[in-house]
C-alpha cells in the first residue's frame, strides 16, 4: 500500500516506504517477482556483487540457531559484468524504482572497480559497499573492522561515483561508532547497519562444525536487539542517514529501527523463511502506525535519543 504516510527520503532519493530487502536474501529479484509485485517495495538491495564471478564457499553453507540462520555462502555472484549485462536488465523490467547495488571486494581496487561499473547504471540509485569482506592484502582482516581500512574503501569508491554511497558496516567490532565516524569523514553519504554476526554451530554426532567453512554469519530476529543498539549508538554520533538492518521481521520492528535512528530499514533472513515477509510488513505498517499514533514515518526517525 503506497501512502504518503510512509514516504521517506534516503540521501535525496524519495522512497514510497522504508522497506528494502537486504542484500543476499532476495537474489536479483527474479524469483521474488513470481511471489508478489516488486513495485510495492521501497527499494531492493541486490546480491553482493564482486569484480570477478565467485562460487563462494563449499556446502554445507547453511545452519540454524534459535531465531536465526547462519550462512557461509561466501558472496556467490556472477561478477559485476554479468550482473550488469543480465541481472540488471531483467530486474529493470520487474522493478521500476532506483535499486541499491551492493558491492564487495577483496582489495581497495576491487571495490573501486565494481563501483565504477555500477556508477554507469541509471537504475542504480545507491551504491552500498559491504566492508565485511577480508582484505587479502592485509592478512585477511575484514575492511570493516578498522577505521582506517573502512575509510580507505570509502574514499576509493567515492572517487569513482557521483551516486550516494552507503557503507555497510560489520557488527563484529568493539567500537562501531569509531568506524562509522571514519566512513563519515571519508565522504560516505550514508551507512547500512548491520551485516551478519560471526557465529558457529557444531554437529554433535559428527563432532564437526555444521558449516564446511566452520564459521558463518548469523542473522535473523536473534540479532535484532544488537542491530538496533548499533543503529542507535551510531545515530547519536553521526549525522549520516542510516539503513537499519538485522532481524527485522514485523512492521513494529521497522518502526523500532526508525525510532532508533534509521531512515530506511532492510529485511534479510526473514525473506528466507517467509517469502511474503516484506509484503506483509508493508501492508501492516499503516495499522501499526495508527496503533502507535504515528502520522508519518518520517516524523519518528531518531525519535529515541
Amino acid at each position: 500500500m503506497v501512502t504518503t504516510r510512509t514516504h521517506i527520503s534516503l540521501a535525496g532519493i524519495p522512497l514510497d516506504n522504508p522497506v528494502i530487502p537486504a542484500s543476499g536474501t532476495f537474489g536479483f529479484g527474479a524469483e521474488m517477482a513470481q511471489v508478489y509485485d516488486l513495485d510495492i517495495l521501497g527499494s531492493i538491495s541486490i546480491k553482493g556483487t564482486t569484480r570477478h564471478p565467485r562460487y563462494g564457499n563449499p556446502l554445507p553453507r547453511i545452519a540454524e540457531g534459535p531465531g536465526g540462520v547462519l550462512n557461509s555462502v561466501g558472496l556467490q555472484n556472477p561478477g559485476v559484468e554479468k550482473v550488469i549485462s543480465e541481472e540488471l536488465p531483467r530486474l529493470r523490467r520487474l522493478f521500476h524504482k532506483p535499486i541499491i547495488a551492493n558491492i564487495s571486494g577483496f582489495s581497495v581496487d576491487d571495490y573501486a572497480w565494481a563501483c565504477e561499473r555500477m556508477d554507469g547504471e541509471e537504475q542504480v540509485g545507491i551504491i552500498e559497499v559491504n566492508v565485511s569482506c577480508p582484505n587479502v592484502h592485509d592478512g585477511g582482516m575484514a575492511f570493516g573492522t578498522q577505521p582506517e581500512s573502512a575509510a580507505a574503501v570509502t574514499r576509493a569508491v567515492k572517487a569513482v561515483t557521483t551516486k550516494p554511497v552507503f557503507v555497510k558496516l560489520s557488527p563484529n567490532v568493539t567500537d562501531i561508532v569509531s568506524i562509522a565516524l571514519a566512513c563519515q569523514e571519508a565522504g560516505a553519504d550514508g551507512l547500512t547497519l548491520v551485516n551478519t554476526l560471526l557465529g558457529m554451530r557444531i554437529d554433535l554426532q559428527r563432532r564437526q562444525p555444521v558449516l564446511a567453512n566452520k564459521v558463518g554469519g548469523y542473522s535473523g530476529p536473534a540479532i535484532f536487539p544488537i542491530a538496533l543498539r548499533m543503529v542507535w549508538q551510531v545515530a547519536q554520533a553521526c549525522s549520516l542517514p542510516i539503513m537499519g538492518c538485522g532481524g527485522v521481521a514485523t512492521a513494529e520492528d521497522v518502526i523500532e529501527m526508525m525510532m532508533a535512528g534509521a531512515t530506511a530499514v532492510q529485511v534479510g533472513a526473514e525473506n528466507l523463511r517467509n517469502p511474503l515477509a516484506c509484503k506483509q510488513i508493508i501492508e501492516d505498517l499503516p495499522q501499526a502506525m495508527d496503533r502507535l499514533r504515528i502520522d508519518r514515518l518520517a516524523d519518528i526517525i531518531g525519535a529515541v535519543r
Partner: peptide, 10 residues
Amino acid sequence: CGFGICMGCS
C-alpha cells in the same frame, strides 16, 4: 530458503 534466493544450496 528452498526457493532460490539465498544461494545456500548452490
